[in-house]
Nucleic acid binder design. Structure first.
Length: 906
RNA sequence: GGGCGCAUAGCUCAGUGGUAGAGCACUCGCCUUACAAGCGAGGGGUCACUGGUUCGAACCCAGUUGCGCCCACCA
């Protein structure tokens, strides 16, 4: 390599500054269409690989959890793209019905307005405006992260096409009898004024009171226990267990309902637990789901006593009170007659809250639309059970089954304005007509559309199909469905994943079962936590803004930190210290490449011929081959953390700390052939290393790789490991690329291992002796001639800063390692005390080792039953330890005493 | 109430039967010409507890203790 050319390519400054490169690189990837996928490119050599983004809500911005999710998806996508797959990552966002409506309503409230002031149409228009702003922010964040999504396919759940998909599946389910309308007790949020599904309700234990109230008088009375005294105004029965002898005489008779002029029947129902409380329960069919069922079984009337805001509607002294105001008021009123309240005691019980606004949910009798989930959930469970869909880690599969095997019918109507309007029209004579896409509502006067919208998860459940064009028969759908893998946090496994399975299988039921699933794998990751494993929350002030980290440390460092902590299904703890470490790693790669360029590294077209190359080169190539294979295996198992860990240590410990150091003497030595080979190997190893790291660290690897190779982009450079041809035809040797072939060189690894041990031992000696690392010391390597380390003398001297011995040479200190005595001429002489401490310690360790191994080998059972290789290893350990003991003992004896003379030692 | 998981160095975590590991933190020494965002060396663990299986247990089994998560319509 001529000096001028090498200088041309050596423009790298000594530090990596991500801010200068990230935007530029992302723009160039985008401009060149590298993230775009064409279904026509799909072929056996370029199979489809497709992921749909878990669509972020248009409310707000991306948090660190999104950054984790996107990092992992992008790593999978980028690796597949390099492997030659036709790769599609579909970006998009979710309209997030109730959440978004709440946000916009809060904005309006600042102007002193409510949505009713605007009216439905104007309000929805206002939400669209909001979506435009907030959505743009999210897309900008994705670019900053480096997400290699296909921007030409950006989707939103309220797009025309996706809305048509929603309408299509609604109509189909309706016609199949899988959607029905019924009056049921549903979860109602008195603040949002809408129905909620079970998953939109969060339960938490809260302190309350269990009040025991006497219904009726004397022998005809019964005491019931309740936490909701205010609903007794709507009681229509008292229930006891059929086998409960205590109350047998009352069953079928009436008791007087306190605070009322009504008498209510005592009924027997097996649902009542005779062990709980008094064994008698008040029945309020309009305000409790259990009671509703009891009421239905016994033909009881339902009396609604709370309105949609949770205020008492029953006429009387409590009318108009809020439910929490009415509760103590009712108890106070009951107490006026000293005989009625039998007991009040503190009671902790689970209370449901609206997941959006935390208001206590009110069970409410109401007419709503439901999906009959039975057959759909069964199919969703079977797809995992029969292996068409894999869950990673497999330990989370039972939770999936628990969910789909015991799923209640899904309440899908919401009394909101923002969302997909229910495509059902009601006629003047009570007709109910479901209108399919492209169809007109029925003609004639008096028809009106259902005012409600669908649960936001209804459209997200279709996401994998609808983003690819369903219900149309598109080329995308044919090429990319089923998607390859769904990557998401485990907390959403049930909410979303199970529903995508249900709707995907149903929507695509015309395909054969294996092709109907929405994705082949489900890769679950955890939540991002702070340095102490605590959940991040705004109130704790321990949140991390991904943009802040990207700005200060770079996108690659942020991504590497997140990916490094990600093992399947478990949470990721992060902190500023760790992202600093990742930033440092980026800089390490930067400087390794910088070193290579300064030394004229070249990237050969093929693996350098190993016949005539230095052992160090054979060693690093052998290690590279091993690491490459391991990276592939780990990626296939979604072990992102281990991929990062492996590459971090390979890059830092082996390539930088050892290979680069070993290459230095060769590069500057007199042997032109060795120097040329070393430049090639250096280029080759860095080329592969940067490629292996690119999925996780796209920016710095792109910047370095283009500088190193002069190539266009690393993004579509061939992946060093597995290629699709190999995957398609595993039996064919021709399908295995040269790069993926095992290229292990145990002899070179053993030789370099020996060199490392020698160098480390001598460094230790130098350190103990207080010799400065940079200080050159004249030395003789006695015994190196004829040993396997003989060819490495130059390297060893270079690594250890040992100069040729001067004349006359007077060794004042020596250290024995790997059979070679390194005699040093230190001006100060030897620090005997330090050396003795060191040797005593080593000796103790060696004795312990010998003792351990010796005891094992003396054990006949061990010799008889342990595998041969374990026995052999143990024998080697013992031999090595014994040799160490002998060597150290000898050297201790030879150590000068205080008088500087050798002396005998015990 | 049901189900699942975790307990390994100061912190966060790897480690599925054969010599206890990493990152960060800590100590000592270094501007050794790729990198001080760096280099070299070092200290630090009864692998929660008890028992069992095994030649051998951080690892498998049982129990105990402590912690966490998910699900749940017992008033």
């Amino acid at each position: 390599m001529s000096a001028d050319l090498s200088q041309q390519r050596t423009q790298l400054p000594p530090q990596y500054t991500p801010g200068e490169v990230e935007d530029r690189l992302y723009q160039s990837w985008d401009a060149r269409g590298l993230m775009h996928a064409d279904p026509e490119d799909v072929s056996p050599e370029h199979p489809a690989f497709c992921v749909v983004i878990p669509p972020p809500n248009v409310t707000g911005s991306l948090h660190i959890g999104h950054a984790l999710n996107h990092t992992l998806i992008d790593a999978l996508v980028r690796r597949r793209r390099m492997q030659g797959y036709t790769t599609l990552w579909v970006p998009g966002m979710d309209h997030a019905g109730i959440a978004t409506q709440n946000v916009v309503e809060r904005e309006l409230a600042k102007e002193g307005l409510s949505r009713h002031d605007l009216g439905r149409e104007a309000f929805v228009e206002r939400v669209w405006q909001w979506k435009a702003e907030s959505g743009g922010k999210i897309l900008g964040q994705m670019r900053r992260l480096g997400d290699s999504v296909d921007w030409s396919r950006e989707r939103f759940t309220m797009d025309e096409g996706l809305s048509r998909a929603v309408q299509t599946i609604f109509k189909r389910l309706f016609d199949d009898g899988l959607i029905y309308r019924a009056e049921r007790i549903i979860n109602w949020c008195p603040r949002c004024l809408t129905a909620l599904s079970d998953i939109e309700v969060d339960h938490s234990d809260e302190d309350g009171e269990l009040v025991s109230i006497r219904y009726g008088d004397g022998d005809d009375s019964v005491v019931v226990a309740t936490t909701r005294a205010e609903t007794m105004l709507g009681d229509t029965a008292v229930a006891v267990h059929p086998d409960d002898a205590r109350y047998a005489h009352l069953v079928g008779r009436d008791v007087q309902l306190p605070l009322s002029n009504r008498r209510i029947p005592v009924i027997a129902d097996p649902h009542v637990d005779p062990e709980f409380g008094t064994g008698a329960v008040k029945v309020t069919p309009a305000h409790d789901p259990d009671d509703f069922e009891i009421g239905r079984r016994h033909g009881l009337p339902s009396i609604t006593v709370l309105d949609e805001h949770g205020r008492v509607t029953a006429h009387g002294p409590f009318e108009g009170m809020d439910r929490f105001e009415a509760r103590p008021a009712v108890v106070r009123a009951l107490r006026e007659d000293g005989r009625i309240v039998a007991e009040v005691r503190p009671y902790v019980h689970a209370v449901g809250h609206c997941s959006r606004c935390s208001t206590v949910v009110e069970p409410r009798l109401s007419l709503q639309w439901f999906v009959k989930v039975g057959p759909l959930a069964k199919a969703a469970g079977d797809a995992v059970r029969d292996g068409r869909v894999g869950i990673h880690p497999a330990e989370l599969a039972p939770r999936y089954f628990d969910w789909v095997d015991d799923m209640h019918d899904w309440c899908i109507s919401r009394q909101l304005w923002w969302g997909h309007r229910i495509p059902v029209w009601y006629g003047p004579s009570g007709e109910v007509v479901c209108v399919g896409p492209g169809e007109d509502p029925p003609p004639g006067e008096g028809w009106r559309q259902d005012p409600d919208v669908l649960d936001t998860w209804f459209s997200s459940a279709l996401w994998p199909c609808s983003t690819l064009g369903w219900p149309d028969d598109t080329a995308d759908l044919a090429a990319f469905y089923p998607t390859s893998v769904l990557v998401t946090a485990y907390d959403i496994l049930f909410f979303w994943v199970a529903r995508m399975m249900m709707f995907g299988l149903y929507a695509m039921s015309d395909r054969e079962p294996a092709q109907a699933v929405p994705f082949r794998d489900i890769a679950l990751h955890g939540l991002v936590r702070d340095a102490h494993g605590k959940k991040m929350s705004k109130s704790l002030g321990n949140t991390v803004d991904p943009l802040d980290w990207i700005g200060r440390f770079g996108a690659d460092a942020t991504r590497f930190t997140l990916a490094r902590g990600a093992s399947p299904g478990s949470d990721v703890a992060v902190s500023e210290e760790w992202v600093t470490g990742s930033r440092n790693f980026c800089n390490k790669l930067w400087n390794a490449t910088r070193f290579a360029l300064l030394n004229g590294a070249t990237v050969p077209a093929a693996r350098p011929d190993s016949q005539h190359m230095p052992t160090a080169a054979r060693w690093i190539l052998s290690r590279l081959a091993t690491v490459t294979g391991e990276v592939d295996a780990l990626f296939e198992r979604y072990e992102f953390g281990k991929v990062c860990e492996l590459l971090y240590h390979f890059a830092w410990d082996e390539v930088c700390d050892w290979y680069l150091e070993l290459a230095k003497p060769a590069l500057s030595g007199a042997d032109d052939v060795a120097a040329a080979v070393t430049r090639e190997v250096l280029g080759y190893v860095l080329d592969r290393l940067l490629k292996l790291l690119h999925p996780v660290m796209p920016f710095v690897t792109e910047e370095l790789w283009t500088a190193l190779t002069g190539g266009d982009t690393i993004m579509i450079a061939p992946w060093p490991g597995q290629r699709p041809a190999a995957l398609a035809e595993p039996a064919s040797p021709a399908g295995v690329t040269d790069d993926a072939a095992p290229f292990r060189d145990p002899a070179a690894e053993a030789e370099i291992g020996s060199l490392m041990r020698l160098v480390t031992e001598v460094r230790r000696f130098r350190s103990d002796q207080g010799l400065r690392p940079g200080q050159q010391v004249p030395a003789v390597l006695a015994g190196i001639e004829g040993s396997r380390l003989a060819p490495h003398e130059t390297s060893i001297r270079s690594l250890l800063r040992l100069t040729a011995p001067g004349e006359p040479f007077t060794a004042t200190a020596s250290v024995l390692a790997e059979g070679i005595t390194v005699e040093l001429d230190t001006a100060a002489g030897i620090d005997v005390a330090a050396e003795r401490r060191r040797m005593d310690k080593d000796l103790a360790a060696a004795r312990k080792e010998a003792d351990q191994a010796g005891r094992k080998l003396a054990n006949e059972s061990f010799l008889a039953k342990a595998p041969a290789d374990v026995v052999a290893t143990t024998r080697e350990r013992l031999d090595a330890a014994r040799a160490d003991i002998e060597r150290i003992t000898g050297r201790l004896a030879a150590l000068p005493g205080a008088d500087g003379q050798p002396r005998e030692d015990a």
